[in-house]
Amino acid sequence: MKPKKNRASGRPTLADVAKRAGVSEITASRAMRGVKTVGPELAEAVKQAAKAVGYIPDPAARALASKRSRSILVLIPALSNQLFIGMYEEIQKALRAEDYEIFLGNYHYDARQEEKLIRDYLVYRPSGVLLTGNEQSAAAAKMLKDSGLPCVYMMDLLETPGTISIGFSQEEAGAAVARHLIATGRRKLAYIAAQLDPRAKYRGQGFQREIARHGLEPAIELRAPIPSSPGLGADQFRSILGEYPDRDGLFFCNDDLAWGALMEASRLQIDIPERFSIVGFNDLPLSAHMAPRLTSVKTPLDEIGRHGAVTLLRLVRGQPVESACCDLGFELKIRESSLFSGGAAP
């Protein structure tokens, strides 16, 4: 006999599953949700019955019944940015291992888009939210607060009471680059940035602070309010040559900008690092294979994603977390692009 269809949707119902498995609807529901009071053999029988009748659970109905869905909202500023791909992969692995689905919001570094995504997805009652940074609009921040959902902020370190954050100090990373360039004998420095998101701003602030601490003139800054790319890096490198020919140490806020600078220097037959020391940020895989190999700040992006997801799941379950502000650190990977012979590596 064919399973009875839901009159409204035409789909098999939970009652069909329960009848085929020979259990009550409540037991079938618990088995489908993975409730541990249902024995493994009975749970398997219910799952096989669901497969046989073609039953597909309705996540919206489940969320309505439980006031929460088994889903997590993940907000990423740009999936076109290579550095977020690995982070998202780790988030996905950690959440799917615990049978959570993902609502992915890509807001293109636009606070208004992020606000709209939050408004749209909160309707589906996710169990929690993973955010990148804490630059949400006032309206978005209020929606998150009013929702009562557990939230974890990735990338930045936040000291705000009641806020859970996982990342590293962007300012300290910028300061480490300045110390390295100064230690290798560079005195005329430049900070070259794109996208102009708050994290790039914080790196620049740390860079300038350390330069001032050494009593040197401030670094000149070249900023472009567009996404970073090797092409933009090449353009910015040419701007340095034309407008600031006295510079000798260049800190690019992203590796792809630094790649463009290295390739343009090679095209123009400008020696790196004798003429310029060049440092990037994030230590993307290609950086260790450039010619010369690029000095860069290695950031724990994959670990941030994994740790962020695991921490959020603990909050969803009402379990304590180790730290409200988890600093995963960074590492300056020193390579040939900054090893100027006029100084020594620290």
Rank of each mutant, 00 (worst) to 15 (best):
E172N: 13
A78K: 14
Y109Q: 07
N254D: 09
R267K: 15
D271Q: 15
Y124I: 01
D16N: 12
I192M: 06
N254P: 00
P273D: 14
A21E: 02
L339N: 01
K4R: 15
A50Q: 06
T13Q: 08
S137L: 03
Y109R: 13
S147K: 09
P227Q: 07
I240P: 00
K47A: 10
S9I: 10
R335D: 00
V152I: 06
C253E: 03
S296N: 13
E274C: 09
I226T: 07
D99N: 13
A45P: 00
E171A: 15
E114S: 11
K188N: 11
A224E: 04
G34D: 04
V53Y: 04
L157F: 00
G167L: 03
Q236D: 01
L286V: 11
G54P: 00
L104R: 11
A60P: 00
I164W: 01
L189A: 14
D156A: 13
Q136E: 11
F276T: 14
C326Q: 10
A265Q: 11
G233T: 01
G162H: 07
A94Q: 11
D255W: 11
P57K: 07
A194E: 10
K93C: 01
K142W: 05
I26W: 07
G260L: 05
E44N: 01
E89R: 15
E172T: 14
P225V: 09
F237Q: 04
E336Q: 12
P245A: 05
N81K: 13
S165T: 06
N6D: 08
G249P: 00
T295N: 11
L196I: 04
S341I: 08
A138C: 02
S337N: 04
S24H: 09
A190N: 08
E89T: 15
A212M: 05
V297W: 15
V17P: 00
A344E: 05
K201L: 10
M154K: 03
F207M: 04
S127V: 03
A63Y: 11
